[in-house]
Amino acid sequence: MENTLDILVFATNIRTSKDKQIISHTLNENSEIHQWNIDQEDIDCVLRIVSNTISEEQIINIVTKHNFNCTPLD
């Protein structure tokens, strides 16, 4: 059976390109994350994570460790 990829969606306060640079290295280095992006045009600065193994809690921990807010969206 094939693994399905989940898309986890979060509201963040990652607003500037500098903010994005701070978090991008950590997200890029995480082998469980297949793809990610931040919609900085959106009022919620929506972070989307594509993965089949990482949990919402792990993402929240990664992002908040860098002093950003991270709240799951439905």
Rank of each mutant, 00 (worst) to 15 (best):
I54Y: 12
L27I: 05
S24P: 07
I22A: 10
D42R: 04
I54P: 14
D44A: 09
I38Q: 10
V46W: 02
H34F: 05
E57D: 14
L8G: 02
V9L: 12
I38G: 13
W36V: 04
S31Y: 07
T4R: 03
C45K: 02
I59L: 08
F68L: 07
H66C: 09
D6Y: 05
I49S: 01
E56I: 04
V46G: 06
N3Y: 08
N13R: 00
V9M: 12
T16W: 13
W36N: 04
V46D: 03
N28M: 11
N13F: 01
D44Y: 03
E41H: 15
L47Y: 05
Q58K: 15
T26D: 10
I14R: 03
D39E: 14
N30C: 14
L73Y: 10
N69K: 12
S24Y: 04
Q40S: 08
D19N: 09
L27V: 03
D74N: 14
D44S: 10
Q58W: 03
S51N: 12
H25Q: 13
D39I: 13
T64N: 09
H34M: 05
Q21S: 14
C45S: 13
H66V: 00
T71E: 13
I59F: 08
T4I: 08
D19A: 12
Q35R: 14
M1V: 09
N3I: 09
I54A: 11
N13A: 06
I59N: 02
S51C: 11
H66I: 00
I23V: 15
C70R: 02
I62G: 00
T16C: 13
N37L: 14
D74L: 12
E57G: 15
K18P: 00
I14E: 02
N37H: 11
Q35H: 15
W36E: 04
P72G: 06
S31F: 08
R48T: 03
I38C: 10
P72C: 00
F68Q: 05
N30F: 07
S51M: 00
V46F: 00
I62K: 03
I59C: 04
E56L: 11
S31G: 06
C70Y: 01
E2R: 08
D74A: 13
I54N: 10
E2N: 12
T64I: 09
T4M: 09
I23P: 06
F10P: 04
M1I: 14
W36C: 03
Q58R: 11
N61F: 03
I62N: 06
T4Y: 11
I23A: 05
L5W: 00
S51G: 09
N69T: 11
I43R: 08
H25I: 10
N28I: 09
E41V: 15
H34C: 02
N67L: 02
I38H: 08
D42H: 12
K20W: 13
S31V: 06
N61S: 14
E56G: 07
Q21E: 13
T4S: 11
L5C: 01
W36G: 00
N37E: 15
I7R: 10
I60Y: 03
D39A: 14
N61I: 13
Q40P: 02
I14Q: 05
L5V: 11
R48Q: 07
P72W: 03
Q58C: 08
I33L: 02
